[in-house]
Design a protein around this nucleic acid. Structure first.
Length: 259
DNA sequence: ATGACGGTGTGGCACCGA
């Protein structure tokens, strides 16, 4: 069984790339972020023709998340319960597997702009609310994966310039402490369960030839629960779509489970 | 220190992303 996460920076623009990628990589579940469209514009029909049902949570212009699945989705939750948030950043669903239900939490984490700004304060509040909600989800669903665009580079090796960018957004001690708090719940960064190439990133700035120079960040993650960890057989970043014409600035991350 | 690139919405640009 395979799951993937991909920030596609406008589903309207990137739908052909998503369909091409799914045709070449027929994962069981694909979680998308930054749809940048409302639910009435979501391409249910095209995805159904490709073999996927979908649950979406969109909004105009910004944010928006969706879960695509070959198997039926159940127990769909939109945004973090109890958090007043007008931004569409979270969608959760349960998918069936031969070993029982798998809970999938898909997040488009707050960017946060810069320390000291209102957006940064929102990011920290959001991360705390997410943490508390994930804890309750774990208690109810032991087999769980938290995935998406975390907008946090967890360690120095996850950044192309950890010294120059120290303390800036994605690199602050506060953001990294929140990432560690998720790990303290028992979640494991599946990417780091395996040997990976040096300078592995999942996002590159569109500007200044960022991708060509591999000036990137690893900010898209797959965290698995303790009960799921023994099933994890591989995790990798697929850089190929970043080379497409009109690419997203993010690459997909793929998680393989021996289920 | 700033802008560079790309998407959106609406407009002759501004805002946002990371």
């Amino acid at each position: 069984m395979k799951l993937a996460t991909w920030n596609i920076n406008s589903l309207s623009v990137r739908l052909p790339q998503v369909l091409d990628w799914l045709a070449a990589h027929p994962v069981d579940v694909l979680c998308l972020q930054e749809l940048k469209l409302t639910d009435d514009k979501f391409p249910f029909d095209a995805l159904r023709s490709a073999g996927y049902e979908a649950a979406c949570f969109g909004q105009k212009t910004y944010n928006g998340v969706a879960v695509l699945s070959r198997q039926p989705l159940a127990e769909v939750v939109r945004n973090i319960p109890g958090l007043a948030d007008e931004q569409a950043r979270v969608i959760a669903a349960t998918v069936p597997t031969p070993q029982g239900p798998l809970r999938v939490l898909n997040g488009y984490f707050v960017n946060g702009q810069a320390p000291g700004t209102d957006k940064f304060a929102y990011k920290l509040r959001w991360l705390q609310a997410l943490h508390d909600w994930v804890a309750s989800e774990l208690a109810a669903h032991p087999r769980l994966v938290l995935l998406g665009d975390f907008n946090v580079a967890p360690e120095d090796r996850d950044s192309y310039d950890p010294v120059g960018l120290a303390g800036t957004i994605h690199h602050t001690p506060e953001e990294r402490a929140h990432f560690q708090a998720l790990l303290a719940l028992g979640l494991v960064d599946a990417f780091r369960l395996f040997e990976q190439p040096d300078k592995s990133y999942s996002w590159w700035d569109y500007r200044m030839l960022g991708f060509q120079k591999n000036r990137g960040l690893r900010i898209d993650h797959m965290l698995v629960s303790p009960a799921l960890r023994p099933a994890v057989s591989a995790c990798h970043i697929d850089r190929a779509p970043r080379k497409n014409p009109q690419p997203s600035d993010h690459a997909p991350v793929v998680l393989e489970l021996g289920l």
